[in-house]
Nucleic acid binder design. Structure first.
Lengths: 207, 207
DNA sequence: CTCTGTGAACATCTTCACAGCT
DNA sequence: AGCTGTGAAGATGTTCACAGAG
């Protein structure tokens, strides 16, 4: 498969949200123009995005809402359930462990870890925080598709090394630090302070 | 000023982190090549990024660490303090209100709001959660540069309308929904489930 | 006549490569 | 000689515009 731009994947994911909304309203078909309006883009962009994966529409009519939703879920790999482990059960980790948006998308948090004895054994909405020392062994059994990193920045790289060594191939990092991973492991980072800085720039530069 | 790509701003922000690290270690100068290695990019990219704003280096020598750090802070608008208000004091809002990374970057959370009586009056690390009904009036006095939205998706748009009407020009949205704002208002969205979906795609497509 | 699918044109971002200062 | 600054080339992403299916 040809390489697909992240911007395209991001838009597909948004289209899917709208499609699911329309699906619930009972809509049968939708045009690229409608999808574009909902998603804040152009109809040509919508069609181009979809064209990378095949042609799912009917000329003169548009796209079947349920069929397109199913197809996008398939493309994104959302037909399966994803097992997710969270490392770091501070405020950010705890918020992530209980985040509704994950479960709605079939990302199931199966375990959470922390190094702080005061946190170990506490429950996050049914998920009992485990001792980080058992992480390596547990990962074999839990076999998560994705691990979320929510530890302090200086602790992140060692955790990532352990997680990668355990064979996990997807990491979503919330610690504000750059991470090195072996080939074949995918890391994405969400840096909340960095987002604020980009916003600060936009507000400062706009004159 | 010419328009600067978001990718450039994002990298500048990362360079700044490294520069501050180097500054603490007492480094006096740094080359584009060093910065590139730290930031996972190329030296040409670093020089190009900086060149949009002027020429701060010395040929044959590199960049002065403190001078470049100061200049980037200035470019990004980080020399001032930013007053930040958070709307929504659920788990995500609470985590944001107490996030260390914000204060370190001089983003000061000055108030938090919620609609739930059970949350109003509780304290988040010194910030007392206020009644959302007083938001509009309070915004006049607080005059924040940025508002963070951490309410449920269906509540987000009405809050954004109120916030924009109060004259706030920067919004960072954590609710998984598209937002409409008047001209002159900048919104950025951090959608945690969407980040997981992009990761799921990367793991699914990589074969 | 409507709306998709897609090459071609265009715009934007990144990398190259080297002139020129120190 | 070392390293910056920057036009030019190259790669990538977006928009246009229209042929063609329904």
């Amino acid at each position: 498969m040809k390489h697909i731009a992240e911007s395209t994947v991001r838009r597909l994911s948004r289209y899917l949200r709208f499609l699911e909304g329309e699906e619930e309203l009972g809509a049968e078909t939708i045009s690229s123009d409608d999808l574009a309006t909902l998603g804040g883009t152009t109809s040509a962009q919508v069609r181009k995005d979809l064209s990378f994966f095949g042609s799912f529409g009917t000329r003169g009519r548009g796209y079947s809402v349920p069929a397109l939703a199913r197809r996008i879920r398939e493309i994104l790999g959302l037909e399966r359930e994803w097992r997710v482990v969270i490392v770091g059960a501070g405020r950010v980790g705890a918020a992530l462990a209980q985040y509704r948006g994950f479960r709605e998308r079939r990302f199931n948090v199966v375990a959470a870890y922390d190094a702080d004895p005061a946190r170990i054994g506490t429950s996050l909405n049914g998920i009992v925080v485990r001792d980080q020392r058992t992480l390596d062994a547990d990962l074999q059994a839990l076999n998560p598709g994705i691990v979320l990193i929510a530890v302090p920045p200086e602790a992140a790289q060692p955790i990532v090394d352990r997680v990668a060594r355990a064979g996990v191939r997807g990491i979503l990092n919330f610690a504000p630090t750059a991470l090195r991973v072996p080939d074949g492991v995918v890391v994405r980072s969400v840096d909340m302070a960095l987002e604020l800085e980009i916003l600060a720039y936009a507000l400062t530069a706009a004159k």
